[in-house]
Design a protein around this nucleic acid. Structure first.
Lengths: 287, 287
DNA sequence: CGCGGTGATACCCGGCGGGTATGACAGGAC
DNA sequence: GTCCTGTCATACCCGCCGGGTATCACCGCG
């Protein structure tokens, strides 16, 4: 009468994402009629209309929109339960050591900090093995939610810490990275306004929470690509101070006076009660 | 091969909580043998040992401990999906107005603020109906997690905001509430040390995150009980400044110089995307 | 008017979730 | 020792329901 089954959630999310019973059924590896029936049963059990079936396609009702969001969150929680239990049971990969932690990090971000953290933690008595999970620009939230990672290093203001527990580790300023020969590269310092208004160098755009702000500059997907575009004189970027470590000879970094500071946090699921994780966090905050 | 069913989670959580197949089966309204079999299947599918069956009782393994925590979170998420979808579909209670929001509040806490918030929000164009859900001292987290509430008013440092999104609304100092006739009641101000060391008045103990710290004072369950115990000269309490509004004639409030400030927040699930909720939060932050 | 494409309906079947009866085993009372 | 008791596991059966196939009803379109 009340509790939804995982299967029903999976089915509904598939239909709500595809907005097409046939395609959704294909994605789920089943035939279309039982899927239609399952969704009908779901609507009857909830006492709520989730989909508007116009001939030619399907649309979500307000309630359907809610169930899509909440259902995704619930499916993530279930996947997380599976993954973390398997990991705790030593049923993963080779070695199968107990208490292993998976730490999600953006490639090449906070490199110095990460090295110090790993060294310091490994020196702790009784420390567990830390597996690093390199991930894309804004993937950490998802990895924490669905249990593929147990902790992550995140950087405000780019990442959102909402929904997680976190501790701030370091704060740093930002610099503008310019082609070495550019006139602005000779300046002692710059303001954000300076950088935004260079006519021949449109500001590179990083994704914020997975989407790109509109603008003239190129959309950046990884750090190597960015480095190359800057070196070729096609763009300028605003990056944290610690990014100086991967600059090329053809780059010049100029401090920004008014850019928001970048804070690196260690982040974990709010409900976590793992002692292993607590140890890692303690080590991190003591750095 | 991988995704857990809601039923399996329910079964496992019941067994893990009871540590007894028979009682768990009774709680689930089923017979013991199929429950045993279901747990075995679960262990085989996860490839992990969850329970240690000694004759005479059952114990959780480390992996079982993890699944208990993560499974509870997942079940909460599923319950939340059900409740919020039903609410969005207007399938709840009489009236069935769309976009209704449920706001969880501790009885009598932040009364002034709550009145202002409700008035201001009701005056907004297109505002939804706000249903108030009075709750116990530290129940708000649970209500948000399992979907019985959409938002809550919480007070740091008593409530933990971990896992939620929040906005701070007001900050206030704390006062010591004493029986009117007590010698300390004549003082202009007090320190926490003063209040803690009154030999004839042990400090009342509020639950923090659901549990009571050890101490000599009485365990407080609600505000009326506290008021009475103070009036009878049995205890002294440290409460936020706004609590002056419910004091009796037999009470005296004395400002505390070094008590941590109490911050009232409006709190909501981090993944929420509801426009109605956003409107309420906007109103609240503008107060 | 037929045709393609949509979701819904009708019907059948096999698997599995659940029940009952019973077993295996350890510990306590005596 | 020998019960008895309380625990979880095993064996077996059955009915339900989830899933498949075939088909329908409907609409838009050339």
């Amino acid at each position: 009468m009340d509790t939804l089954e995982t299967r029903e959630l999976r089915y509904f999310v598939a239909v709500a994402e595809e907005l097409h019973f046939g395609r959704a059924a294909e994605r789920l590896g089943m035939a279309q009629p039982p899927l239609s029936r399952a969704i009908q049963q779901l609507e009857r059990r909830l006492g709520v209309c989730l989909l508007e079936r116009n001939r030619r396609g399907v649309r979500l009702t307000d309630a359907g929109e809610v169930l899509l969001h909440e259902g995704r969150a619930a499916l993530d929680a279930i996947a997380a339960a599976t993954r973390r239990t398997r990991r705790a049971g030593g049923a993963d990969g080779p070695g199968g050591s107990r208490g292993r932690l998976v730490l999600a990090v953006k490639a090449a971000a906070s490199h110095e900090l990460l090295r110090k953290l790993l060294d310091a933690y490994a020196a702790e008595p009784g420390s567990a093995e830390i597996e690093l999970l390199p991930c894309g620009i804004c993937e950490q939230e998802e990895l924490l939610r669905d249990g593929r990672a147990d902790a992550a290093l995140m950087h405000t203001p780019w990442n959102s810490l909402a929904g997680f527990d976190s501790e701030a580790l370091t704060t740093e300023g930002q610099v503008a990275v310019l082609p070495a020969g550019h006139p602005l590269a000779a300046r002692e310092s710059l303001s954000l306004a300076d950088v935004r208004d260079v006519p021949d160098l449109p500001l590179a755009r990083w994704p914020t929470r997975g989407t790109y702000a509109p603008g003239p500059g190129p959309e950046i997907h990884n750090q190597t690509q960015l480095a190359q575009l800057i070196a070729l004189g096609r763009t300028v970027a605003v990056v944290p101070d610690s990014a100086r470590s991967w600059l090329w000879a053809e780059h010049t970094a100029v401090p920004l006076t008014d850019a928001p500071p970048v804070v690196t946090h260690i982040v974990w699921p709010a409900h976590s009660r793992s002692l292993t994780l607590a140890g890692l966090v303690r080590t991190a905050t003591r750095l």
